[in-house]
Amino acid sequence: MTRELTQLELLRELEPVAEENVHRHLSMAKDWHPHDYVPWDDGRNFAALGGVDWDPTQSQLSDVAKAAMVTNLLTEDNLPSYHRVIAENFSRDGAWGTWVGRWTAEENKHSVVMRDYLVVTRGVDPVALENARMTHMTAGFNPDLQEGLLDAVTYVTFQELATRVSHRNTGRACGDPIADRMLARVAADENLHMMFYRNITGAALDLAPAQAMRAVVKILANFQMPGATMPQFRRNAVLIAKGGIYDLRQHLDDVVLPVLRTWKVFERNDFNGEAETLREELDELLNGLRADAERFEEARDRALARAAERGKVTVR
């Protein structure tokens, strides 16, 4: 039986891959500045400075867009927790340390630009937003990463891609070309971040197939977005799913399956023993996700049909 690699051995063996991907990221990343994506001319003082405080009529966003923007922003806000998790499971030295710092700095831009946009355009209640931020960040984020490095890179691979999908669809849902442009820029960052983590996990599948597959199956079986503990997350998640921002079908078709295809999980012939057993478990897990997605779509279609019928009755 192949010996399990320790966390230190995994870090050492995978560091050349991390270094290569840091260089790739820096060559592909585009500099941008949050202030260039905010319509400052729309801004005005609130009551504390002699202006007018927020009221719901000032927002130009739909309920779906507001729920998605708040959820995405509060997710980005919890960056200190994510930095801690990544730093604890990676290293502050060498390529790992360079990535931790660069990734943290880039992610911070996302919360800056989204908050500035929402406050300036009065898209959501800034007091409620700040209260939710305080609650969410005080609770923090503490995922179950018993496998350390491999759990961390696997989780963030799927999470970064899920976030990219959510940001991109939220931009379209806002009905504002400025918001769409802003969130397209944020989504592009998230995609590059996903590629870094995806490539590390892919290399881990070559290096330690059973250990890496253990992480893949565990993360997908228990996957939750990092915003799951924020105030009103369940309500907002339902609105987001019904509104086509992010639902089970998108999670499966736009996030999970593309990553697994890139890793060639079901095409590999170097799996045996535990890795092969875990691949069979993964196949069963995917079948369950497909069934869940179909049930959600059927329920959503029925709800939309009922709503349309009620609309016809109201018109008459």
Results as ranks from 00 to 15, higher is better:
244 G>V: 00
104 T>Y: 11
127 V>F: 09
268 R>P: 09
75 T>D: 12
220 L>F: 08
250 Q>S: 06
201 T>P: 05
31 D>M: 10
168 R>Y: 01
159 Q>A: 08
174 C>Y: 04
67 A>Y: 00
195 M>D: 05
49 L>I: 05
255 V>W: 02
170 T>A: 13
316 R>Y: 08
48 A>C: 04
196 F>H: 03
198 R>D: 11
205 L>F: 11
86 I>G: 06
107 E>D: 11
126 P>T: 01
252 L>D: 03
201 T>Q: 11
173 A>G: 02
90 F>E: 02
316 R>F: 15
293 A>I: 06
129 L>T: 00
185 R>Q: 13
239 L>Y: 15
166 S>Y: 01
256 V>I: 14
151 D>G: 13
56 P>L: 01
210 A>I: 11
112 V>M: 13
69 M>N: 04
186 V>S: 02
118 L>N: 14
77 D>T: 05
297 E>V: 08
135 T>G: 06
32 W>N: 14
52 V>Y: 01
97 G>K: 11
142 N>V: 01
107 E>C: 05
281 E>G: 06
6 T>V: 08
158 F>E: 00
88 E>S: 12
105 A>P: 14
213 M>Y: 00
51 G>N: 13
112 V>H: 10
191 N>H: 10
45 N>F: 13
167 H>R: 14
37 Y>R: 14
267 E>R: 11
279 R>S: 09
127 V>N: 08
255 V>L: 09
291 A>V: 11
234 R>G: 14
182 M>Q: 07
284 E>K: 11
218 K>Q: 00
190 E>M: 00
20 E>G: 12
62 S>T: 13
287 N>P: 05
121 T>R: 03
91 S>Y: 14
184 A>P: 10
7 Q>F: 09
290 R>W: 06
86 I>V: 08
58 Q>W: 01
49 L>H: 15
59 S>C: 08
68 A>W: 01
162 A>E: 14
171 G>I: 02
122 R>V: 07
234 R>I: 07
252 L>R: 05
216 V>L: 06
94 G>T: 05
217 V>M: 03
134 M>P: 00
3 R>F: 02
294 E>F: 09
68 A>P: 03
73 L>T: 03
71 T>N: 15
115 R>L: 08
17 V>S: 13
13 E>F: 15
137 M>G: 01
218 K>W: 00
269 N>G: 07
176 D>E: 10
91 S>I: 03
